[in-house]
Amino acid sequence: MFPLTPDDILAIKLSVQVAVTATIIALPLGFGAAYLLALSNIRGKAVLEGIINLPLVLPPVVTGYLLLLLLGRNGWLGKVLALFDIRIIFTLRGAVIASAVVGFPLLVRSIRIGLENIDKQYIQASRTLGAHWWDTLFTITIPLCSRAILAGTTLMFARSLGEFGATIVLAGNMPGVTQTIPLAIYQYTSTPGGDRMALSLCLVSILLSFVVLLIGEAANRTLARN
C-alpha cells in the first residue's frame, strides 16, 4: 500500500484548489489576450505576444523570481497591494498567481489558434444580421472556438497542477499553506527515507493529470459532435 499522510491529503487539496483558481482567473484574461492577438488590429502585437510567451521560455524559477521582485514587500505592485493589506508572497495567493502566469501562454496559444481558424465571414454575417459585437462574441465567436478554449483550459489546468519552480520562489513550501503536490514530492525526496511517500504522491499526481486529460478529451468529443 502507498500511504498518504494528512499533510499529503492537504497538499492534494491545495494543488486542486490552486489549479482551479488559477485556471478560472486566467481564462477570461487569456481569451482577451488571444482575441487581441488574433482578431484585433492593434499595434505592437509582436511585443504583446513576446511578453505573454516569456513564461513559456524562461526557467520557471526566473519567472518566480521576477514575480517576487514585482509583488514582494518592496516591489512596485507589492507596495500598492500592501496599502490594501494584501500579501502575496508566501501565501496561497502567491501559488495561484505563479501557476496562472506560467500556464497563461499555453492557454492563450490554444485559444488564439482557435480564433484564427474561425472564418471571419461568420462574424461578419452575424454583425450584418443585427448582432452587436458582444452578442456576436457570445453567440458566434466563443462557440466556434469552444474546442480550442477547452484544449487551452485543459493544458493550463494540467500545467498548474505540476507547477513547481515559480511557486516555490513566490509562495514558498509551507505544508498546509502553500505546499502543493510537486512541492511535497520535492520535500520527501530531500528527506532521508521519504522515497516511499514521494512515490505515493507521484502516483496521485499521475492519476490526477490523467483524469484531467480524459475529462478534457471527453468534453472535446462532445463539442465536436455538436
Partner: peptide
Amino acid sequence: LPPDKRRIGVVFQHARLFPH
C-alpha cells in the same frame, strides 16, 4: 454606424450558415 445598426443585409458567397 456599426454593421448591426445599418440595416444592410449581406448574402455571402458560400452562404456562411453558422455551423453550430
